[in-house]
C-alpha cells in the first residue's frame, strides 16, 4: 500500500466517520457519495457523521492462514460488527480469549496498529474492536 492511499482514509480509520443521507437518514460506513436508497435525491445532501464505535457481532471467523503482514498474529478473530448507528463493518476482535468471541456479543472500537508498509515504512493505524468492558458505564 502506498502512503497517500492510507492517508486519505484516516478520518474513517481513526474516528469512524461515516455518512448520513440528508434525504432518508440512512447512515453508511465507510461514507458514500450517493445514498443507495435515494441515489439522485441524495446528491449534495450526504453529511459526515461520527459513529459511536459500539455494536454487536453478527458473525465471525478465526483466521489461521493469514494475509501478508498478519502472520504473526494468528490465530485472530475477524468479525462482522453491526454498529448501533446502523452500518455493519469488518474488523478484528482483540484482547479476549477466542472462545469469548460469539455472535451477539457487545463490542466497542479501539485504536490499534493495523499494518505497516515494512519495518522501515509507514505504520497504518485504525480501528479494531474489543468485547465491551461490562463494569464501565
Amino acid at each position: 500500500m502506498t502512503v497517500p492511499r492510507f492517508w486519505r482514509e484516516i478520518p474513517q480509520r481513526y474516528n469512524l466517520i461515516g455518512s448520513k443521507c440528508g434525504s432518508c437518514g440512512t447512515v453508511d460506513f465507510p461514507p458514500r457519495t450517493i445514498c443507495p436508497h435515494c441515489r439522485r435525491k441524495s446528491i449534495g445532501k450526504m453529511e459526515d457523521i461520527k459513529l459511536s464505535g459500539k455494536g454487536e457481532i453478527v458473525s465471525y471467523s478465526i483466521v489461521r492462514e493469514a494475509p501478508e503482514g498478519f502472520e504473526i498474529q494468528v490465530p485472530y478473530a475477524m468479525a462482522l460488527i453491526k454498529l448501533d448507528d446502523g452500518p455493519t463493518l469488518t474488523a478484528q476482535i482483540v484482547d479476549c480469549e477466542l472462545e469469548e468471541v460469539k455472535i451477539g456479543a457487545r463490542v466497542e472500537a479501539v485504536f490499534r496498529r493495523i499494518q505497516e508498509e515494512s519495518k522501515s515504512g509507514v505504520i497504518y493505524y485504525g480501528y479494531k474492536f474489543q468485547l465491551a468492558m461490562p463494569q464501565v458505564k
Binding site: M1, E9, P30, V58, S59, Y60, S61, I62, V63, E65, A66, P67, E68, F70, Q73, Y76, M78, A79, L80, L89, T90, A91, Q92, I103, I114, Q115, Y124, G126, Y127, K128
Partner: peptide, 29 residues
C-alpha cells in the same frame, strides 16, 4: 491469501486482516 482477497473490498475488509476464507467462514458461522 492476499491475492485471493483482492476480489473482496481491499480498503474495508482485506486492509483489516480479513482473508477470503475468513469471510466465507463468517457465512458458514
Amino acid at each position: 491469501v492476499n491475492i485471493q482477497s483482492t476480489s473482496c473490498d481491499q480498503e474495508w475488509e482485506a486492509f483489516f486482516g480479513a482473508s477470503m476464507s475468513s469471510l466465507y467462514g463468517m457465512m458458514a458461522r
